[in-house]
C-alpha cells in the first residue's frame, strides 16, 4: 500500500445563521459535518453526492479557500489548518484546484499566456525566459497550440477552456489537484477528451487527484476509491469496484440504482427514494438519511452511526452494519 498524501480528520464547516439586532447566531448550516478520510499518493479519490451534500465545500476547505470551522488536514504529515495565510499561500504550490465552470474561472482580460504565467510569477518561479518556455511546454502538454497562447478565453470552446484551467493548475508541478466537477459543464464527446487528458497527465506527472463530481459513471471510470456524501457527512468509502458492485449503505444503493444506463437491454432494480434531501440547517437527528431510508430502524432516528469498517478498506456509516448499535442504544 502506498503512503498517505492527505489525511483529513473531523473536518467541519458550519455557517452561522444570524438573526436579530446583535446578529446572534441562531443556529448553523452544517455544510460539512465531521468527516474524515485519507488520500494515498498517486490515486484518484472521488467525492460524490447530490447537490448540497457538502462535496464542494469539502474540496475548498482542503485548500483553505474556505476556512474550516474545525478539524485537521495533514498534507504530507503537516497540519495545514495551523499555517499562517502566507505559509498557506506557499504551500498551495503543491495543491492546486480545477474549477467546474471554465467560463468564469479564467480572467477574460488576460491572454492564455498571461493566465498560465501568473502562478509562476506569484510563486517566483524562474526568470521571464524560463517562464515563457514553461508556458509553452504546459500548452503543449494539455494539447493547445502555441498560437493559442496569444488569444483570450472567450475565443475558446468549453473543452479548450477546461484544458487551460488544467494547464494553469499544472503550472507549478503540484502534488495534489482537487478538481471540482471538471467535466460536468462539457458535452459528452468533449467530456471524454478531458477525462482522457487528466488520466494521461496523472500517469506522466504522478499526480494525486481528488475528483469531486455528481456523475457516478464518470467517477467510476476515473477514480480508484470513492467516498459517498449525504448532507455533510460521508456515508460510505471504498475501493470503486467494491463500492459499485456491493454498495452497503441504503443511500449508496439508491443512488447507484437511480443512474440511467446507456443500454436499452440493461434493466436494473430501481430503488426510488421518497421525498427530498432535508435542509442542512435543520438536519435530522441520528442518521442524516433516516427521513428517506427504506430500511430505517428506531436507532437511526436517535444515534448518528459511526463510519465503521465492514470489509477490506470498506467503511460504512449505517446501523445495519453495526452489530453493537442495538446494544448501545438499549
Amino acid at each position: 500500500m502506498s503512503e498517505t498524501l492527505l489525511e483529513v480528520k473531523g473536518l467541519k464547516k458550519y455557517y452561522p445563521i444570524r438573526k436579530g439586532f446583535f446578529n446572534k447566531a441562531q443556529g448553523f448550516v452544517k455544510a460539512v459535518d465531521d468527516i474524515s478520510f485519507s488520500v494515498r499518493k498517486g490515486e484518484t479519490f472521488g467525492l460524490v453526492g447530490e447537490s448540497g451534500c457538502g462535496k464542494s465545500t469539502t474540496g475548498r476547505s482542503l485548500l483553505r479557500l474556505i476556512e474550516p470551522t474545525a478539524g485537521e488536514i495533514s498534507f504530507e504529515g503537516q497540519d495545514i489548518t495551523k499555517l499562517s495565510m502566507e505559509e498557506m499561500r506557499r504551500r498551495r504550490r503543491d495543491m492546486q484546484f480545477v474549477f467546474q465552470d471554465p467560463f468564469s474561472s479564467l480572467d477574460p482580460r488576460h491572454t492564455v499566456q498571461r493566465i498560465l504565467e501568473e502562478p509562476l510569477i506569484v510563486h517566483g518561479a524562474g526568470n521571464s525566459m524560463q517562464r515563457k518556455a514553461a508556458v509553452e511546454r504546459l500548452a503543449d502538454v494539455v494539447g493547445l497550440a502555441k498560437a493559442h497562447l496569444q488569444r483570450y478565453p472567450h475565443q475558446f470552446s468549453g473543452g479548450q477552456r477546461q484544458r487551460i484551467g488544467i494547464a494553469r493548475a499544472l503550472a507549478l508541478q503540484p502534488k495534489l489537484i482537487i478538481a471540482d466537477e471538471p467535466v460536468s459543464a462539457l458535452d459528452v464527446s468533449i467530456q471524454s477528451q478531458v477525462i482522457n487528458l487528466m488520466q494521461d497527465l496523472q500517469r506522466e506527472f504522478g499526480l494525486t487527484y481528488i475528483f469531486i463530481a455528481h456523475d457516478l459513471s464518470v467517477v467510476k471510470h476515473i477514480c480508484d476509491r470513492v467516498a459517498v456524501m449525504y448532507l455533510g457527512r460521508i456515508v460510505e468509502v471504498s475501493g470503486k469496484h467494491r463500492l459499485y458492485d456491493e454498495p452497503q449503505h441504503p443511500y449508496t444503493q439508491a443512488l447507484l440504482s437511480a443512474v440511467p444506463e446507456p443500454d436499452p437491454d440493461f434493466r436494473k432494480e430501481r430503488i426510488i427514494l421518497q421525498g427530498e434531501v432535508p435542509s442542512p440547517a435543520n438536519a435530522p437527528a441520528g442518521c442524516a438519511f433516516n427521513t428517506r431510508c427504506p430500511r430505517v430502524m428506531d436507532v437511526c432516528r436517535n444515534v448518528r452511526p459511526p463510519l465503521l469498517e465492514s470489509g477490506a478498506g470498506h467503511l460504512t456509516a449505517c446501523h445495519l452494519y453495526d452489530r453493537e448499535a442495538g446494544i448501545r442504544f438499549a
Binding site: V188, N196, Q199, V259
Partner: peptide
C-alpha cells in the same frame, strides 16, 4: 464516449 457503470474500460 459515455462511461458506463456496468463495465470497466481503460480509456474512453
Amino acid at each position: 464516449s459515455v462511461p458506463r457503470m456496468n463495465e470497466t474500460r481503460e480509456r474512453l
